[in-house]
């Protein structure tokens, strides 16, 4: 990796101020993705601003019964938090399904939202890549694309977002709190990550210099039967081929409300809003779940090697909904 200047900042404001003045500066906290990217020469910052010692490590209850999670809370601490396990089990389970214990001990909540794709062409500087170097081309579209996107992709990029945690946060309608040069703002989770379009170099809607300071979980009365199902090439320590965060709000047999988000299929955590709308008022049974899964994947556009993801996603949705209907647990 190329050398860089290093400094430890003492406040979020200082971090944002310095980052705004030097667009070649990068924030570092856990570093689990960034240090690897530095080694691969994917990022070559002038300076790293170490935010890891800032006071953003608390999980607090909010006045309306939700939770506010500091951006520097580790993945391990969030997954093991008593209230997260109790109220938002899909989030605990999603985090615990990701990476390994060592990485979860290092990785932060803010960093998890900022991790970049593991597309093998993006990672290999011998190949062109529109995400790494705009307007150079995308070898994945006609290449080895077994792990790539089936929803929301573009002519420029078929990479997928690798995060598990973000899939659960999408289903839970989380809010991302960010510190900008002038002020703080809140971004709804659906608007945080972006689809590739013709600018796949941008993963999120963050403005230059903006720093994630917290993630807010609104209360969700029925989240306790939420599930996270992850399907991958080996039983543990692998990125998702397909994953599903899902929960049903039942009144007897009748579905009052549903949340479904998919991972491993798109450039951002994919919320299946049409399937959710279809489920409202229906009877919770296998036939209903099958129709919802078909709706969720109706716009899928598989590539040469990832056609299996369409059926795999449908099966995963059906199973996740069925387990949530039984009260949740391991899907």
């Amino acid at each position: 990796m190329k050398n860089f200047a290093y400094s430890r900042v003492s406040s979020a404001e200082e971090a944002v101020d310095r980052s705004t003045r030097d667009h070649n500066a990068l924030y570092i906290a856990g570093g689990t993705n960034l240090v690897d990217r530095l080694k691969a020469f994917l990022d070559e910052p002038n300076q790293l601003l170490d935010i890891s010692r800032l006071e953003m490590k608390r999980i607090e209850s909010t006045s309306n019964g939700g939770l506010k999670i500091g951006a520097l809370v580790t993945n391990t601490d969030l997954a093991n938090h008593t209230e997260v396990r109790r109220q938002y089990p899909m989030l605990s389970r999603a985090i615990l399904s990701g990476a390994s214990q060592q990485i979860r001990n290092m990785a932060t909540v803010g960093g998890n939202l900022m991790q970049r794709t593991r597309c093998s062409y993006y990672y290999d500087t011998a190949f062109a890549c529109n995400k790494r170097q705009p307007n150079t081309g995308c070898p994945a579209i006609n290449g080895v694309n077994r792990t790539h996107a089936i929803l929301g992709a573009s002519e420029s990029c078929v990479a997928v977002n690798p995060s598990d945690m973000s899939v659960a946060l999408a289903a839970l309608d989380a809010i991302v709190e960010v510190q900008g040069e002038q002020s703080q703002r809140e971004i709804s989770f659906a608007d945080f990550h972006r689809l590739p379009g013709d600018t796949p170099n941008r993963d999120t809607h963050l403005e230059p210099g903006e720093l994630i300071t917290a993630v807010i979980l609104p209360p969700l009365s029925f989240a306790r039967s939420g599930v996270y199902l992850k399907l991958r090439d080996r039983a543990s320590y692998a990125f998702a081929l397909v994953s599903v965060a899902a929960v049903l709000d039942l009144s007897g047999e009748q579905i009052r409300n549903a949340r479904i988000a998919l991972g491993g299929v798109a450039h951002k955590p994919w919320r299946a809003s049409e399937a959710e709308a279809f489920l409202q008022g229906k009877t919770a049974n296998q036939s209903t779940f099958e129709q919802a899964a078909d709706i969720a994947l109706q716009d899928a556009q598989p590539l040469l090697y990832n056609g299996f993801k369409v059926d795999l996603s449908k099966r995963a949705i059906r199973r996740a909904l069925a387990v949530s209907a039984r009260g949740g647990g391991i899907a």
Partner: peptide, 9 residues
Amino acid sequence: QRVYSCLLL
């Protein structure tokens, strides 16, 4: 806490 020393500066 266990960590990967190869990914830490």
